[in-house]
Write a protein that binds this DNA or RNA. Structure first.
Length: 285
DNA sequence: AATATTTGACCTCG
DNA sequence: CGAGGTCAAATATT
């Protein structure tokens, strides 16, 4: 990888660490309640750092040509593909070979915790809930709503770690490649086959915050909690405050380059809803 | 109607 | 084999 990139990564990591310090400082000085106002912001900043670092690291060196339009080709973009070896004889009962999912290896992940459910501005779809050994509260599994639309592989797990002062831990896996377009974009899309998608790359346009998501209502959706937990063991939480696992690029999905609709003047449509840390930086002009 | 959640079965890895 | 991650049918929500 180029030394410039390396420098950039170091600098980002430094920013992340400093932000963590700031966060700890805020927490210590004002407690969780004092953090309420700035909690979103700090969390977002940290997520931004984490995302950017993840992107920069995962697309190190060679570029990939994957992650283009998830146009309905022969393959569905949902992780496991359909074995090109040509057979697809999924006869017999309906419970044939359901998942051939592989267990989560050392994929990029980072965790955050907060006294409230953190809202990262992304659309999540819950797909599972599990009781975890030695944990008081079950773990909830979310994936990006646009997994099937756009092959967005982002995933997160949310679990209540502590409940006197409620604290929730959220672990993110992968980063978003979805665009979160409005329905209005349909008009733009179908304009014949003039696929004039352009690729944006990183550029440090110092933008100011236009996210219009500065403060969220405390709870939107996410887990509504439950009660069946009366198994009280010890809680040997092995979850540090935050972690950034070492690199390991098992996944492809480079969001270092993403396709954008043509129409250089439809920013008004887009800028309304998107808040994703990794996309906003790219959608700026 | 489409779209989201619940929940037990199913799958993998340690 | 069991803990944890995922799927998908049934169900709930919009």
């Amino acid at each position: 990888m180029s030394s410039g990139r390396r420098k950039a990564i170091e600098e980002l990591a430094r920013g992340r660490d400093l932000t963590n310090q700031l966060r700890d400082l805020l927490t210590k000085s004002f407690g969780d309640d004092g953090l309420l106002g700035s909690e979103d912001l700090v969390t977002k900043i940290l997520n931004s750092f984490a995302n950017t670092l993840s992107i920069l690291r995962s697309s190190s060196g060679d570029y990939d040509e994957v992650s283009q339009n998830p146009r309905n080709s022969n393959m569905s973009w949902d992780g496991r593909k359909s074995e090109e070896s040509g057979e697809s004889i999924k006869s017999s009962t309906q419970k044939d070979r359901r998942g051939c999912y592989k267990r989560r290896k050392s994929e990029h992940s980072w965790t955050r915790d907060s006294p409230t459910l953190i809202d990262d501005g992304h659309a999540w779809r819950k797909y599972g809930q599990k009781v975890i050994l030695n944990a008081k509260h079950p773990r909830n599994y979310y994936r990006c709503t646009h997994k099937h639309d756009q092959g967005c592989q982002a995933t997160k797990q949310v679990q209540q770690i502590e409940d006197d002062p409620p604290k929730y831990g959220t672990t993110y896996y992968g980063h978003h490649t979805c665009k979160n377009l409005l329905k209005a974009s349909q008009l733009i899309l179908d304009s014949t086959s003039k696929d004039s998608s352009i690729l944006l790359s990183f550029a440090n346009t110092n933008k100011q915050d236009n996210s219009m998501f500065s403060a969220f209502p405390p709870v939107k959706q996410e887990s509504k909690e439950d009660m069946p937990s009366d198994i009280t063991y010890n809680l040997s939480t092995s979850s540090p405050d935050y972690l950034l696992s070492p690199d390991h690029l098992t996944t492809f999905e480079s969001s270092a380059q993403m396709t954008v609709l043509s129409a250089a003047d439809h920013a008004d449509v887009i800028s309304g809803v998107v808040d994703s840390v990794d996309l906003d930086d790219l959608l700026e002009f």
